[in-house]
Simulated scan of single mutants.
Amino acid sequence: MKTTTVILDQVVAPVPGGIGRYALNLVRALTARVDGIRSLVGFVPRVSHDAVRQIEGFIPLLEGVNVSPFPRAVLARAWERGVAVPKHEVTYSPSLFAPLAEYGQHIVTIHDAVPWTHPETLTSRGARWHRAMGERAQRFADIVVVPTDAVASRISTFLSLGDRIRVIGGAPTSDLIVPVDSENRRFALGLPDVYITFVGTLEPRKGLEQLLVALATIEGLSLVVIGPQGWGGVSVDDLVTRTGIAPHRVHALGRLGDSDLAAVLSASRGLVVPSIEEGFGLPVLEAMSLGVPVVHSTAEALREVAGQSAIAVDVHGKNGTIKLAEALTGLNDETLRRDLASRGMARAAQFSWDASAARLESVFEELT
């Protein structure tokens, strides 16, 4: 029986973000497909026993979880230099945090080209590390997984990967179910009756400041911000002060569990994704799966994922903020919202984690 080691650091990372959500759902679906020919064993940096038990609870069909003696920061620096790389027969890494070396076979994931195209939106250290790991993937990876054709095209500008690229996207999580006590949950969170939502890690490329500027020109509409603090010093309070929007119109909830997330999203007038760049955009599909209209930027990956089922706005072009405000105002039209909800639900139904896991399974078969 072949053993594949799966790197699961993002699942227990302090800020798991979209990559952590992708890794958890894809690996969980993959383990459900394992047929006895291959076993899947998790690998994580040094973490607590509670974190290991958390992974085992999230992905119960793993054969086990191996824990490195080194913390993530140490492993990240070491693996960037090809040091302290464990020798595994086959390694699957759902991110660039990968033990890439000459030994064994390696499947690694590059989620976006942001470290190359918009390094100013990351920390300088983070941008350098991602580019360095991209170069190691170029040298050692047998297969490079990307989430969209848009990323495949963009990353090929910077790395010579030839025919090693495979596209495996995400899907709405099956855990995102609207709870029966949604109204009580929204009340406990102190939410207004009419609001739009922003979902994502708080970082410069997500476009939150521009969204607040646009929203400040519209009366009677509030914003609910969902997501953990990331990097780049993005503070909701600071952005509220800088943009001049009334503070009572912005509700920052931080990271939410799936039940609360579903309760908040499902009652939203729309999800707004004004990102400068994305690799996939899981919140787009998750909102669509709940019948929530979506307004997004013209980032190529977002257009690819949403198809013709959302409103695309060139928010970063000339008069972008005005166009974004117009799109938000358009959500007052109930007929439009119903049409977007219908098209969005149909679009989201075209994606599933099982289908993504089947594509990943075929990648494993390529290496046998």
Rank of each mutant, 00 (worst) to 15 (best):
H111D: 09
T109P: 01
F158K: 02
R154S: 15
A78G: 02
V144Q: 12
K87P: 00
Q138M: 01
P119H: 06
I59Q: 06
V74A: 11
R81G: 00
G134V: 05
V145G: 10
V67C: 11
M133N: 03
H130W: 11
T121A: 07
R136I: 07
P94Q: 13
R154P: 00
R154T: 09
V108A: 14
P86G: 05
V85D: 05
T157V: 02
A78F: 14
P86V: 00
H106D: 09
F158M: 05
V67S: 07
S160K: 13
P71I: 11
H118L: 09
S68W: 07
V67G: 05
L75A: 05
L61W: 08
R131Q: 15
M133Y: 09
V85T: 11
I155H: 08
G82M: 06
T117A: 14
G104C: 13
I155Q: 10
W129H: 13
V67L: 08
A98E: 04
W129P: 00
G57N: 14
R139L: 15
T157Y: 00
I59A: 07
V151D: 14
H130A: 14
S124F: 09
P71C: 04
I110K: 02
L61T: 10
G64T: 06
V145T: 06
E89K: 10
L62R: 10
W116F: 15
D149S: 07
P71T: 03
E89I: 02
V144S: 11
P86D: 09
V65T: 04
H106N: 08
I143E: 11
F140W: 15
T91Q: 10
D142H: 15
P60E: 07
Y103S: 15
Y92G: 01
E102G: 15
P94K: 11
D149Q: 10
A132R: 14
V67F: 03
H106T: 08
Q105G: 03
P86M: 04
A132Y: 01
H111S: 04
P147W: 05
E135S: 07
V85C: 10
